[in-house]
Design a protein around this nucleic acid. Structure first.
Length: 273
DNA sequence: ATGGCTTACAAAGTAAGA
């Protein structure tokens, strides 16, 4: 079974309907994992997505902030939503891809807290909440059964740029939330807890700069290129070879009224083991 | 000089993003 999966922090789903339609037309997308939908469940534009062919839709939204949605052309079954740090915010949704031989993989869609401005847990409660969230994810991940055989995909805006090449300047971002050593350590501990594979770095060498987010404030985002890799695609070891292609679709950042994040498209072939 | 912008909202200035 082959399919493509896109993760995209959309920064308001209702504001981005045209961009999404344009994207899925240009880049065949079977499963679309959106973050920051900023839309409560009653106002989610279901019909728009059904008309684009995404007839299987699972959402976990709240008014104005956060929110995730997983939209699929292929049958999916909702698994659960989890509240990892007890804030009640809509930041996670998991579904199972139905119809694959032996039960399809679970797909986790995450929006990890951004963490505010100041990288200090005393001065900034949002930073403390972010670290709590990552730690709770690690505890949950470590409990997942069958490290070697488990088939799972974890995508989303993890709001941490772990490698030196995941930011435009390692030195200048060491004290900037998203690239501080404590966040990088928490993300790496999470990754190690279930031997998650960083698919983006399997396909693009760690020596190469790689970003998925560029600030709205730059006059010319491509020229200044002060980006960060905040969005991630992870798989369990059992699916390492199944992730056959990967592309960061940065041209989308130039489209009309873009999100500040760009889509990351992964091709899967579940026969490849 | 990372915040110069962008978003949501019981609508003008706040809060938040990262």
């Amino acid at each position: 079974m082959k399919f493509t999966l896109v993760t995209w922090n959309i920064n308001s789903v209702r504001t981005r309907l045209d961009a999404i339609a344009r994207f899925v037309d240009a880049y065949p997308t079977d499963i679309l994992c959106l973050q920051e939908t900023k839309c409560d469940n009653g106002n989610f534009p279901l019909e728009h997505f059904r008309s684009l062919g995404f007839t299987h839709i699972e959402i976990n939204g709240q008014k104005a902030y956060h929110g995730v949605a997983t939209l699929s052309r292929l049958p999916i079954e909702r698994v659960e939503t989890r509240d990892f740090n007890g804030t009640g915010q809509a930041r996670h949704l998991s579904v199972r891809l139905a119809g694959a031989a032996g039960g399809g993989p679970v797909i986790h869609n995450f929006y990890v807290p951004a963490g505010g401005d100041v990288p200090d847990v005393e001065a900034n409660p949002k930073f403390a909440q972010k670290l709590d969230y990552l730690q709770a994810m690690e505890r949950w991940s470590a409990r997942q059964p069958g490290k070697k055989t488990n088939q799972a995909i974890l995508v989303g805006d993890l709001n941490v740029a772990p490698l030196e090449t995941d930011v435009w300047s390692h030195r200048q971002l060491l004290r900037v939330v998203s690239h501080t050593p404590v966040e990088v350590e928490r993300l790496e501990a999470l990754r190690r807890s279930h031997d998650w594979v960083d698919v983006m770095r399997e396909h693009i060498p760690p020596e190469e700069k790689l970003f998925t987010w560029w600030s709205y404030r730059a006059r010319d985002w491509r020229k200044s290129n002060r980006g960060r890799r905040l969005d991630h695609v992870w798989v369990t070891p059992a699916l390492r070879k199944a992730a056959v292609s990967l592309r960061v679709v940065d041209e989308v950042r130039d489209w009309t009224r873009p999100s500040d994040h760009v889509p990351v498209l992964t091709g899967f072939d579940l026969r490849r083991r």
